[in-house]
Computed example of a mutant assay.
Amino acid sequence: MQPDFSTLDATLGDHDGYLLDADGTDSTQRYLSGFDAPDPFVTCYTPEGTHLLVSGLEYGRANADARADTVDRLSAYDYRDRVQELGRETGRGAVVADFLAEHGVESVLVPGRFPLGTADGLRGSGVRVEVDESDAVAEIRAVKTDEEIEHVRRTQRANERAMAAAETLIDSASVVDGVLHHEGDSLTSEAVRREIELTLLESGCALDETIVACGADAADPHDRGSGPLRAGEPIVVDIFPRDKETRYHADMTRTFVRGEPSETVREWFELTDEARRAALDAVEPGVTGAAVHDAVCDVYEDAGLPTLRADPDAETGFIHSTGHGVGLDVHELPRIAPDGGELEPGNVVTIEPGLYDPDVGGVRIEDLVVVTEDGYENLTEYPVEL
C-alpha cells in the first residue's frame, strides 16, 4: 500500500519534514512509516523520502518491513551517552536533531500530541518545531486505498461472525422470571461479550471493549452493559474489532429482543431502520457528512421525536451524531455529523442512527459503508431485523 502524500507535501509549506515520535499503536505513525513496534521510534517524512530512527532491537525488522527510504539506529548517534549527559528527554531530542540534520531537515511540522520532551530537545538544538493544526495525515488517512478497503471488509466479516455468535446465544436462552438463562445460569452482558471475544480471536481479531447493553443500560449509547439480560427489553450489541495482522477496524451494531418487545420498541426499530436507509440514500461523493446527518434528523423529527439538532440539550431521542470514519482507528475522519465535510470516494464511514430513553431502553442499527464514485457500497452483510 502506497498512500498519496501529495497533500502532505503541500501542507509542509516552508518546513523540511513531518516528524513523528511514537510507537506503532499510534495510527498516524503506523500509516506514515508502514512499521509497527511496541516502543517509540522516530519517523521523518520529507517529499524526497521517509527516514526512520529506531532502536537496535528493531533495526533489522524495520529494514525488512517499513515503508522507508532509510533506517538508522539510535546508537549511530551516541544515544546512551547523550541521554546520560543531558537527561532522557532532552538527550533524545538532541539525538533526533542530529538525525534530522543528517537528512538536511532544519524545520518540522508535528502532530498535536507530539511528545513535549522531544520537542523541547529539538528546539534546544536549533530545530524549528511547529504543530500541524490541519492534522494533514488524518485527512489523508480518511481516503482509503483499495487494499485498505479490503482490510476493513475482512474485519467486518469477522465482526459478523461474532455478531452471529451473540445472536445465537441470546436466541437460545431460556427465560426464568423475566431473566435470560443459559446452561443453568443467568445470561449476562459479560457472558455475551466473552462469546464475542472468543469468536473474534478465532478469526484473528481482537478488541478492547464491546457493548452488550440491555434495557436502561442501552439508553446510554456508550454504556458497555453489565449484569443479567432481561426478556422483552432491547439488547444493543455494538462490536468494533481490530484485525491483529492489518490493524484495521470494523464496526457494526444490531438490536435484539428475546421475547416480546413493547410496541414502542417496535416503532423505534422501524423508525431507526427508516433513518438508516435515508442516510444511506444520501451518501455519495460531494455530499457533506452534515447533510447525511440531517437526513437522519429529518426522519426522527418528522415522527415527533427529539434530536440534538432540534434541541441541543436533549437527553432522550437521537442524542449523537450519525457516524464516523473507520480505519486504523475505530473513530477517525470523516465525520457524519453537523460539522461533517464533503465525502470522497474511498471514505469508509458508519451509519448508525439510534433512539434512547431510560424508560424504554435503546435501539441502534449500524452499517459500515465505503463511498464510491457513484454512491456507496455497504460492507455490512448482516441482516437488519428486530
Score class of each variant (00 low, 15 high):
249 H>A: 12
251 D>H: 10
257 V>T: 05
258 R>I: 04
258 R>F: 05
258 R>L: 12
260 E>Q: 08
260 E>N: 07
260 E>T: 14
265 V>L: 12
265 V>P: 12
268 W>I: 08
269 F>G: 09
270 E>Q: 11
270 E>R: 15
271 L>R: 04
272 T>E: 05
274 E>Y: 04
274 E>G: 06
277 R>F: 10
278 A>N: 02
278 A>R: 14
280 L>E: 14
282 A>Q: 13
282 A>G: 01
284 E>N: 04
284 E>H: 15
286 G>V: 04
286 G>M: 10
286 G>S: 07
289 G>N: 12
293 H>R: 01
293 H>I: 02
294 D>F: 05
296 V>K: 00
297 C>V: 13
298 D>T: 14
298 D>F: 04
299 V>T: 10
302 D>W: 00
303 A>W: 03
303 A>Y: 10
304 G>H: 13
304 G>T: 11
304 G>M: 08
305 L>W: 09
305 L>H: 15
306 P>G: 04
306 P>F: 06
308 L>T: 13
309 R>D: 11
309 R>E: 13
309 R>W: 09
312 P>T: 03
312 P>N: 03
312 P>G: 07
313 D>F: 07
314 A>P: 08
314 A>H: 06
315 E>V: 12
316 T>K: 06
316 T>V: 15
318 F>R: 00
319 I>A: 12
322 T>W: 00
322 T>M: 14
322 T>F: 02
323 G>T: 00
324 H>C: 05
324 H>K: 12
324 H>G: 03
325 G>E: 05
326 V>F: 13
